[in-house]
Simulated assay, not measured.
Amino acid sequence: MRIKKVYNNNVALTEDRNRTEMVVMGKGLAFQKKNGDKIDVDKIEKTFTIPSEGFASKLAELLDEIPYEIMVLSKDIVDLAAGRLSTELNDSLYLSLSDHIQFALTRQKDGILIKNALLWEVQKFYKDEYQVACEALDMIEVKTGVRLPEAEAASIALHLFNARQDSSGMEETIKMTTIVMDIINIVKYHYGIEFDEASMNYSRFVTHIRYFAYRILRDELSDEENNQLYEQVKMQYPDAYECTKKVQRYLNSEYQMGMTKDELAYFMIHIHRVTSRVKN
């Protein structure tokens, strides 16, 4: 493995015999090294594959601003998340997470506290990611001596969710979370009930809404018009129908998106099921 480019004393871009590029990190592994020199593999602590053409250049930019220790810490958090979430994470997470952690530490040092408006929603809807993020706060504290506020766990959790290989962008993730929360509140206030958030019934309902919100934002809603099913469900579950109409008005007002009769029918069924079980 030979050096292709030295970023600093601790980080270098390398190339193996198969001409595969990889960023390697380790204390002093590139000290007094130049392009073409061999890397001492015993000094390698972390490795990054090159997922895209711009990855290496973006990493180089961050290395001018972010301490090596934070980069290593971020890699450890990403490795923890990949194992706990049992999923592949985009390599770009190393960059975005390192940048976020360093910025959060700087803000904490300067006494600038920022609330995360989605803290409660993230705790409820992205429980696995949030749990990993809470452990990340512990890891950050051990490494830096700084305890970041709970709001940062929500931010890190969103970064983790966003980095899933099958996920959408951060902006879409936040929009989806907002839609889910708003729809749940519409149902709660319409029926005057509180959900048992630990129940499987509630979990199924949230999963349905999350998938529904995902399809809304990607314009993948059903184009079917099942009038017979719609009329049948409308007559059978009149309260769920009125609630669904409120959801429809909300989506039309906030996102200029409608619902087909097919979507309306299935939404009524889901609302009736979750609310009737709560009442019972």
Rank of each mutant, 00 (worst) to 15 (best):
S253T: 10
N18D: 13
I209Q: 09
Q165Y: 07
T207R: 10
R215Y: 12
I3K: 13
M25W: 11
D182C: 11
K261F: 10
L95T: 00
Q165K: 02
R19Y: 08
L113G: 08
E172Q: 11
T173I: 03
P149W: 04
D110P: 00
T260K: 07
P238N: 05
D37E: 12
G192N: 05
A163T: 06
D76E: 15
R277I: 07
M25F: 12
N201Q: 04
K38L: 14
K75P: 04
W120G: 08
D223M: 06
V187E: 06
L137V: 01
I209N: 05
Y230A: 01
R2G: 01
N9A: 15
Y211H: 12
R204P: 10
A240E: 01
K143H: 08
L97M: 01
D223I: 00
S168E: 01
E224A: 13
K43F: 15
E69N: 12
H272G: 04
L229M: 05
I183Q: 13
I186W: 07
N35V: 15
L59R: 13
S86C: 08
Q256Y: 11
L97I: 00
I156M: 11
V11T: 03
T177I: 15
Y189E: 13
L73D: 12
D196R: 14
T49R: 15
Q165R: 11
L13G: 01
F195I: 07
